[in-house]
Design a binder for these strands. Sequence first.
RNA 1: GGGCCCAUAGCUCAGUUGGUUAGAGCGCUACAUUGACAUUGUAGAGGUCAGCAGUUCGAAUCUGCUUGGGCCCACCA
Length: 894
Amino acid sequence: MLESKYNSKDVEAKISEFWDNRKDFKAEDLSTKPPFSVILPPPNVTGFLHIGHALDHTVQDVLIRWHRMRGFNTLWLPGTDHAGIATQSVVEKKLKKDGKSRHDLGREKFLEEVWSWKEEYGNRIVSQMKSLGDSCDWDRLTFTLDDNVSNAVRKVFVSLYKKGLIYKGKRLVNWSSKLQTAISDIEVEYKDVKGSLWHLKYEVVGEDGKFLIAATTRPETFLGDTAICVHPEDERYKNLIGKKVKLPLTGREINIIADEYVDKDFGTGVVKITPAHDFNDYEMGLRHNLEQINLLNTDGSLNENAGEYKGLHVQEARKKIVSDLEEGGFIDKIEPHKQSVGHCERSGVVIEPYLSEQWFMKMESLAEPAKRAVESGTTDFIPEKWTKTYLHWMNNIQDWCISRQLWWGHRIPVFTCQDCGEHIVEMDDPADCIKCGSKNLKQDEDVLDTWFSSALWPFSTMGWPEKTETLKTFYPTSVLVTGPDIIFFWVARMMMQGLEYMKDVPFRKVYLHGLVRDSQGRKMSKSLGNSIDPVELINDYGADALRFTLMAQLASGRDLKFSTQRLEGYRNFINKIWNATRFCLSLTQEYSFKYNENFKTDLKNDLSAFDYWILKKLEITISDVHEKLEQMRFSEAAQSLYSFVWNEFCDWFLEFSKLRVYGESEEDRAAALHVLHFTLDKAVKMLHPFTPFVTEEIYSHLPAKNSESMALSQYPTLGDLEGLNLEETGDYFNDVELIKALLTAVRNIRGENRIKVSQALKVFFVPKDEKSQKAVQRHKALLVKMGLLSEVSFEEPQTFAKSAVAPVKVEGRAVDVIVPLEGLVDLDEEVQRIEKVITKIETDMNILNKKLNNEKYVANAPEDLVEADKVLLTDLSSKLDFMKLHLNRLSMNE
RNA sequence: GGGCCCAUAGCUCAGUUGGUUAGAGCGCUACAUUGACAUUGUAGAGGUCAGCAGUUCGAAUCUGCUUGGGCCCACCA
């Protein structure tokens, strides 16, 4: 027997072990089944699972499990990422505690350290993914530094190099002085910062006492100025072009040049030019052939070009230089200034434009096909709005700085001849120079940006460059599930490389979900301390509850605020399913019931109308869930299942069934138990992609099971209901709806009049037509029992002066419910209740009347709509009459 | 500066192509609870769908403007 409370920990442990011992989730390279494939965005190998992963993975797992159960040959390919910067930083931090740096160890020793770190923590995230229930093909788990991936990386690098798409250049790049490496444009995060605008005075040579004033936000860079620039048409300065100015403090002379880049109307109309430390100035420097004076060391301190300021860090140097400038009278004024400053996404430090030799990838030609693929709909973005973001970036694409001054990653496979300077880029490490034959070769020290290997992920993980069966079967993948924050970093680059090397897009659809925020809508971050640990949540509430919560909250790609209250609610839902199962199983045991899977519903007994009813509801739910999942409307699919299980199956059907199961008729008991189990089985199967653990456990106890694992059983389809004779449900279905409405009406009267449930009532159900008559007669016993009534009568009462009433109408059936209240309650309550009902009816009728009196509405609206309104109006009006009559009687009686 | 998104019950949100008499969960109130479940049951209260204007027979839904909030891109020293 099952425990009365669902114990998620025990069940999850048990199911995990069950899965571990089987190979249920293996994809088949050769199969006649239709393929469905997803690559898992590889998380940082030494990282923790965070709530964003939980969402991302649940979406994928729902899709994967759903397809697997529908007979697809599914591949969910898992992997982990070496995450160059992040991982290297962690290990360096650890070394620092022992007072060591990576340079103390040397490259080889250091890499050994990182590998052992990876060995120690690399499994952590994988087991966290498993505890979430990720049904990946774990045998295919790939790490970005695995040989086959590294091989693909080298192959692509060599190929792009030979095509001339990878080149080396001395350029201004974004430099993180903390990480001491170049980073790419998209790794720079711009933030608004309050700063100052210093107006510096440059003395014009030969014009006694005349100064040009140029403003700057970074005064320390004046040491690297190699020109002063004005607009060629600026009357104020036109005559000075070609002359020289003296740099403050140092007195070094630089030219006054003219360029249209300068905005005459901004500030003084004079700009200082520092080609080695500003991107615009760099361009200008190239145009005017200016000298580039680099002031910085790699750690962000000033170098020998800064003279006496050498060794100071930028921030300190700025203070000192400003005070020196002020002292020397070189500052005209200082204004407060708000500007946006680039920060290193990873380390948070201010990015310095820094002149250095780096490797770059030309992007324009690669971007072209990637752009077209999305424009033409070969790959679709969901939601569609991200298409714009993607295309905008593609249209303005810049060359990508792919080299990083790190050790952890794919080392750039370029060998340079130390004698003749030739670059050798081949698949195998060269022994000697192809040009001069020298053996004095040296491999580039840098590694590739982590995203370089990520860009190849969809095919490198499938065995490329070999023409593997995996690639044939599963490429392109069906859908990529990820967050919109990595459209540029990852999605766009996979599109480009996939098209370049596989000649096809890497995925047919890109589903972009929102961010998981805290309950106040703030981004989760370490510094705010508002991060939610999914592992903790799984421990406290169960993986199923967490998954269902995420799915129920995930709508139309917007961000979701995570609320523990909702999580609790869905934990309760899991428990509800558990207990419904417990109930069914206890009955099975009690009555030694044997499930026959070929059972048929049959109207041998009036009570089997309920079977028709729940099966019809099941049918509706099956097609609804299918439709919603097909459209990736996860919250709606979840909602549909939730209300079917709780509000239809548990609230009504189980209750109806009790009467039948505990009744005399063995035949009816068997019928009820069959439908109970049948419906439960289908419901639980439909839930399985969302809540794999509890459903798998339940399944193992069900008599109706037809495969060892629910994960491999068949997802419910409408076909499952064929042969159950559901065609005739119409009447029975609505009969049950009527019974439900009648019970609700009685409960309503009880509730509003505060009549205790222990107080049995006599009730008059007065049917208004033959169908209602039949339905009420048939289910009299049930109405008495479930309505907790003492007696039911179908005659109009002699006097219903002191009665509560409710007219009930359902799909062509109408019954007046009359409950005598004599001696039970204060009639005022009932008067109030009736008055409220009357007001509501009147408002509704007003709206309808207004509509129907509007000739244009009647003329323009679809006929059936108008017709429905007319019927509704008639109904309301008779209802109103009934209520008014009753109200009169109640009042007369006072 | 350019672009995108959001605003619906006290809270968190659903609401597909305009046709509703605007929904759910939580919370709240009242009552109940010996045979699945207190992680429960039954019932109730609660909304001028941010504001204004427009299109339409009809607007939470479409358009424009306003207000408030969020995100992305660009980077004028």
